[in-house]
Deep mutational scan, measured.
Amino acid sequence: MATGGRRGAAAAPLLVAVAALLLGAAGHLYPGEVCPGMDIRNNLTRLHELENCSVIEGHLQILLMFKTRPEDFRDLSFPKLIMITDYLLLFRVYGLESLKDLFPNLTVIRGSRLFFNYALVIFEMVHLKELGLYNLMNITRGSVRIEKNNELCYLATIDWSRILDSVEDNYIVLNKDDNEECGDICPGTAKGKTNCPATVINGQFVERCWTHSHCQKVCPTICKSHGCTAEGLCCHSECLGNCSQPDDPTKCVACRNFYLDGRCVETCPPPYYHFQDWRCVNFSFCQDLHHKCKNSRRQGCHQYVIHNNKCIPECPSGYTMNSSNLLCTPCLGPCPKVCHLLEGEKTIDSVTSAQELRGCTVINGSLIINIRGGNNLAAELEANLGLIEEISGYLKIRRSYALVSLSFFRKLRLIRGETLEIGNYSFYALDNQNLRQLWDWSKHNLTITQGKLFFHYNPKLCLSEIHKMEEVSGTKGRQERNDIALKTNGDQASCENELLKFSYIRTSFDKI
């Protein structure tokens, strides 16, 4: 039985969820670079991206490699990797027998973001014989899940209580170790020597080791999670996991709180800001991140802002960003909400898709409305799209047979046209069989910064309504002859009103 693990408890099935942008060198404390989270699957090609990484700022997932063999891993080693800020997950990587050479110096898994409450997941690794993470000293947050690894031993010899604050939620089941077939031998045991430290858990006094050649490092209890030197002297209180010299914040392997210019500090002093819960960055760093993602459509890219001495992905609820200094300031009234469309555009074809934009005031991208039916549609669209004030790209209304009016965009005031449909149009209306009105132009103002209007096959939309939009939106004169079809717009509506004058002759039985 794995020490510190839980057996036999019912657990939810383990679901495996399925960018080499360097964020800056980590400095003297770390020998390499800070790398983003990685999802490495199918083959070993991307694994080489770990070569210079000291910190993975995010998670590391290595999974679904069915053609790899043990010899493929023999020359692979990433000794610079010290810390993973989120979680480490391995799933069905064939041929991998140990992690001792792959990650010989991995010391800390912070667990800032977890995989279903777990910071370390080893699942269905069919050839893994031992973990071998002999320098792993601290899992700051989260638990361990090690399950269905039929060859995995050296679990009962690990004292997880020396690595985690609590072992109650560890789930370590259905491994070879369960069948008591392992016969784990710690260093020196074969020669009758006791080389590794022994600890007591559940009444068992057991030597602690990761492999037959690597003991588990056990520091004096007084050192807590700070770690200790090879001689057993406690590291500085700002260290986490390990250090090369005692009581020196510049000799830590990793930091308990924050890293700044080669030393570990309790908090980031001005003019620095907390970033990702582990390091200090200056304003320029946060500003660069903001600008890199301002026009990016890459998933996970955030326009970072500053709030409460932190550089964070977005302002919290009730705050909006001051564009001059990136500071989050309290909103006066309802907060603006910028919604970034991942692929640059979004099609609204149902109430469900409209709900995804609920509360958005600025759309960074283009909207395509293609709704053919739905219950209580006008009210639903207004509830979900009615706060949109600005669209950076274009607005396209296409084959939306259920629409009679666009009044559900009740606050839309600006279409920038930074991206144009077919390279020309910022407003595009095609084949809307029941569209009769755009907006009530006596109450609604709309500016279209650039781009043209396109109207074709809107049989109940009168040309007068379209011409009014040209005047109000500032697009009059931009359109070419064929942009607004004269014969297919309003051709099934009563669009022309003329005053009919009647004269009559009164007659009676005795007068003409």
Rank of each mutant, 00 (worst) to 15 (best):
residue 45 T to M: 08
residue 288 D to F: 05
residue 278 W to R: 02
residue 88 L to G: 00
residue 139 I to G: 01
residue 203 G to D: 10
residue 291 H to P: 01
residue 240 L to M: 12
residue 285 F to A: 10
residue 110 R to K: 10
residue 276 Q to W: 03
residue 297 R to V: 09
residue 296 S to D: 15
residue 140 T to K: 14
residue 216 Q to A: 14
residue 325 N to I: 00
residue 163 I to K: 02
residue 108 V to I: 13
residue 33 E to G: 12
residue 33 E to D: 15
residue 38 M to C: 02
residue 190 A to D: 14
residue 237 S to I: 12
residue 256 R to T: 11
residue 149 N to L: 01
residue 180 E to T: 08
residue 74 R to T: 07
residue 184 D to G: 15
residue 124 E to R: 06
residue 210 W to M: 11
residue 186 C to F: 08
residue 263 R to Q: 11
residue 83 M to I: 13
residue 99 L to E: 00
residue 109 I to A: 00
residue 232 G to H: 06
residue 70 P to S: 04
residue 105 N to G: 08
residue 257 N to G: 03
residue 243 C to R: 00
residue 138 N to S: 14
residue 252 C to K: 01
residue 319 Y to V: 04
residue 57 E to C: 03
residue 136 L to Y: 01
residue 78 F to S: 02
residue 248 D to R: 03
residue 79 P to A: 08
residue 195 N to I: 11
residue 264 C to H: 00
residue 271 P to C: 07
residue 245 Q to S: 07
residue 117 N to M: 11
residue 287 Q to G: 15
residue 148 K to S: 15
residue 97 E to T: 08
residue 222 I to Q: 10
residue 75 D to E: 10
residue 77 S to I: 08
residue 52 N to G: 06
residue 282 N to V: 03
residue 91 F to I: 11
residue 307 H to I: 12
residue 175 N to L: 10
residue 156 A to W: 04
residue 137 M to H: 13
residue 62 I to V: 14
residue 180 E to K: 10
residue 214 H to G: 12
residue 143 S to P: 10
residue 189 T to E: 07
residue 90 L to C: 11
residue 280 C to M: 00
residue 140 T to I: 09
residue 217 K to H: 10
residue 41 R to P: 13
residue 229 T to R: 06
residue 90 L to A: 05
residue 213 S to E: 12
residue 170 N to G: 05
residue 180 E to P: 13
residue 225 S to F: 13
residue 34 V to L: 07
residue 108 V to T: 13
residue 189 T to G: 13
residue 109 I to W: 00
residue 281 V to D: 01
residue 255 C to P: 00
residue 248 D to W: 03
residue 63 L to R: 09
residue 161 S to I: 05
residue 44 L to Y: 08
residue 164 L to P: 01
residue 144 V to A: 05
residue 249 P to D: 01
residue 46 R to M: 15
residue 300 G to N: 07
residue 54 S to L: 07
residue 123 F to S: 15
residue 330 P to S: 10
residue 158 I to Q: 08
residue 95 G to A: 11
residue 134 Y to P: 09
residue 165 D to M: 03
residue 291 H to E: 08
residue 135 N to V: 01
residue 48 H to C: 04
residue 192 G to P: 05
residue 197 P to Y: 09
residue 63 L to K: 02
residue 268 C to P: 00
residue 191 K to G: 12
residue 151 E to Q: 13
residue 147 E to M: 06
residue 314 E to A: 11
residue 295 N to F: 12
residue 305 V to P: 04
residue 217 K to G: 12
residue 44 L to F: 11
residue 127 H to T: 11
residue 106 L to R: 00
residue 178 D to L: 13
residue 303 Q to E: 15
residue 109 I to S: 00
residue 175 N to R: 10
residue 332 L to F: 15
residue 251 K to R: 09
residue 54 S to D: 01
residue 297 R to F: 03
residue 235 C to W: 01
residue 333 G to T: 05
residue 178 D to G: 15
residue 302 H to Y: 11
residue 161 S to V: 09
residue 211 T to L: 15
residue 289 L to A: 09
residue 38 M to H: 13
residue 183 G to F: 15
residue 195 N to A: 10
residue 300 G to M: 09
residue 110 R to I: 10
residue 36 P to W: 05
residue 70 P to D: 14
residue 250 T to Q: 04
residue 117 N to I: 07
residue 232 G to F: 04
residue 204 Q to P: 15
residue 251 K to A: 00
residue 68 T to L: 09
residue 174 L to H: 14
residue 256 R to N: 11
residue 130 E to Y: 13
residue 334 P to F: 09
residue 325 N to K: 03
residue 323 S to G: 14
residue 179 N to R: 14
residue 158 I to C: 03
residue 193 K to N: 06
residue 195 N to K: 09
residue 140 T to S: 10
residue 232 G to C: 12
residue 130 E to G: 05
residue 243 C to K: 00
residue 134 Y to G: 13
residue 244 S to W: 10
residue 253 V to G: 08
residue 293 C to I: 08
residue 325 N to T: 05
residue 86 D to F: 00
residue 292 K to S: 04
residue 222 I to W: 15
residue 79 P to W: 14
residue 275 F to G: 01
residue 69 R to H: 11
residue 247 D to K: 06
residue 100 K to H: 15
residue 218 V to Q: 12
residue 135 N to L: 02
residue 159 D to T: 11
residue 234 C to T: 03
residue 272 Y to W: 10
residue 281 V to W: 01
residue 65 M to H: 07
residue 57 E to T: 04
residue 160 W to P: 01
residue 155 L to S: 09
residue 270 P to A: 13
residue 194 T to F: 13
residue 116 F to L: 13
residue 329 T to W: 09
residue 34 V to Q: 04
residue 133 L to Y: 02
residue 207 E to K: 15
residue 50 L to C: 02
residue 105 N to R: 08
residue 116 F to I: 13
residue 131 L to S: 04
residue 155 L to W: 11
residue 44 L to E: 12
residue 235 C to T: 00
residue 163 I to P: 00
residue 116 F to Q: 02
residue 270 P to C: 04
residue 141 R to Q: 15
residue 212 H to G: 08
residue 265 V to H: 12
residue 268 C to S: 00
residue 251 K to W: 02
residue 330 P to I: 14
residue 163 I to A: 02
residue 298 R to N: 07
residue 246 P to L: 11
residue 245 Q to A: 08
residue 259 Y to A: 11
residue 205 F to R: 02
residue 33 E to A: 15
residue 104 P to Y: 01
residue 174 L to I: 14
residue 213 S to Y: 07
residue 191 K to T: 14
residue 203 G to M: 09
residue 214 H to A: 14
residue 69 R to E: 11
residue 114 L to V: 08
residue 209 C to N: 06
residue 83 M to L: 10
residue 71 E to Q: 06
residue 97 E to P: 06
residue 263 R to L: 11
residue 56 I to L: 07
residue 73 F to G: 07
residue 260 L to Q: 01
residue 233 L to C: 01
residue 303 Q to F: 14
residue 39 D to E: 15
residue 139 I to C: 02
residue 131 L to A: 15
residue 93 V to F: 05
residue 50 L to P: 01
residue 228 C to F: 04
residue 319 Y to A: 11
residue 152 L to C: 15
residue 303 Q to G: 10
residue 106 L to D: 00
residue 130 E to L: 04
residue 224 K to L: 11
residue 222 I to P: 05
residue 43 N to C: 01
residue 98 S to M: 02
residue 214 H to N: 14
residue 180 E to R: 11
residue 85 T to Y: 03
residue 258 F to D: 02
residue 269 P to I: 08
residue 295 N to V: 03
residue 283 F to M: 08
residue 80 K to S: 09
residue 259 Y to V: 06
residue 306 I to P: 02
residue 49 E to H: 08
residue 243 C to F: 00
residue 92 R to T: 04
residue 237 S to M: 05
residue 237 S to K: 05
residue 102 L to R: 00
residue 107 T to P: 00
residue 241 G to N: 03
residue 223 C to F: 08
residue 297 R to D: 11
residue 183 G to C: 14
residue 274 H to S: 05
residue 288 D to A: 11
residue 283 F to E: 13
residue 201 I to T: 06
residue 149 N to S: 07
residue 294 K to G: 13
residue 129 K to P: 01
residue 222 I to E: 13
residue 324 S to G: 09
residue 286 C to T: 13
residue 64 L to P: 03
residue 116 F to M: 11
residue 32 G to L: 11
residue 279 R to F: 11
residue 335 C to V: 05
residue 83 M to D: 02
residue 215 C to I: 14
residue 165 D to F: 13
residue 77 S to E: 07
residue 328 C to W: 02
residue 140 T to L: 05
residue 168 E to V: 12
residue 264 C to A: 00
residue 305 V to G: 07
